[in-house]
Design a protein around this nucleic acid. Structure first.
Length: 263
DNA sequence: GCGACAG
DNA sequence: ATCTTGTCGC
């Protein structure tokens, strides 16, 4: 049985090589298959689930915004956390911490992990699933921010990215119909045998007709959630908008909190 | 050397 | 990520 690993929290002071080594360790510890108690199929219809006596899991969405300095430099990250249950918001918290390192593709968790863990500490409820803005297994060392945070907290997690960091879609992903998905497999840039399934391009919404498309989301398992289930959960949670509701709410909250911080 | 690169 | 109103198209 796995357990929280606060000792593996992202340390921005590590050398680049040490960061990459830690990510390989994280990937080894991560569980890329279902290992949680709730019923993922009951998420799309909370009312029916409640009627049949099932308890809805507490699902949390996380997103960041950045605060700028008097000199116009991004010096702090604001991590917004929104907890939901049965589609309702039950808690919102946020935390602001100084930024230690710049954005480097592949090392995102070392820049934003600190703020995120700080915000999660403020939560009074216990997340049963956390959705992050960014990749999980779709990562050079199969340890994106969703995987790193999931392993440190030992909570089921899913990565939801708006663009593809690495890997290769098995089919064309242009103009996919709503509700569909295309497998993303490892390519040369991923530390996994070529062809390994590492996630899905998930089309949660699509315009009805002519010349105007919506890009898919790139969904991957973070920790204790399999690729298939991760894709299904995101589809169930993206009821009215492109992004799954918890992430969309966190996105909005991150901007709100930032505004009142500047005013 | 060139290309690729979550937020 | 961020700077930001209107605007093109359904």
């Amino acid at each position: 049985m796995s357990q929280p690993r606060p000792d593996l929290a992202p340390d921005p002071g590590l050398s680049r090589a040490e960061m990459e080594t830690l990510q390989r360790d994280i990937a080894d510890i991560a569980v890329f298959e279902d290992d949680f108690a709730f019923d993922p199929d009951a998420l799309s219809n909370p009312l029916a689930a409640a009627a049949s006596g099932d308890e809805q899991p507490i699902i949390v969405g996380v997103d960041q915004s950045f605060l700028t300095n008097a000199d116009g430099e991004q010096d702090r990250a604001l991590s917004a956390v929104v907890a939901t249950r049965g589609g309702e918001v039950i808690e919102r918290v946020h935390a602001v911490t100084g930024l230690e390192i710049p954005y480097i593709p592949g090392l995102l968790s070392f820049r934003e992990g600190g703020p995120i863990l700080a915000a999660l500490e403020e939560l009074s409820v216990d997340p049963e699933l956390i959705l992050f803005d960014g990749s999980g297994r779709i990562h050079f060392r199969q340890a994106g921010i969703a995987t790193h945070m999931g392993v440190v907290r030992d909570v089921p997690s899913i990565g939801v990215a708006k663009s593809l960091l690495c890997g290769r879609p098995r089919e064309d992903t242009d103009d996919l119909p709503a509700g569909s998905r295309v497998a993303i497999e490892a390519n040369t840039r991923v530390d996994a045998p070529d062809g390994t399934l590492i996630g899905y391009a998930v089309q949660t919404r699509q315009y009805d007709s002519p010349n105007r498309h919506i890009n898919p989301l790139y969904v991957s398992s973070g920790h204790r959630v399999g690729s298939e289930t991760a894709a299904e959960i995101v589809l169930e949670l993206a009821t009215s908008y492109k992004l799954p509701e918890p992430v969309r709410l966190a996105d909005t909250y991150a901007d709100e909190a930032k505004r009142e911080f500047n005013q």
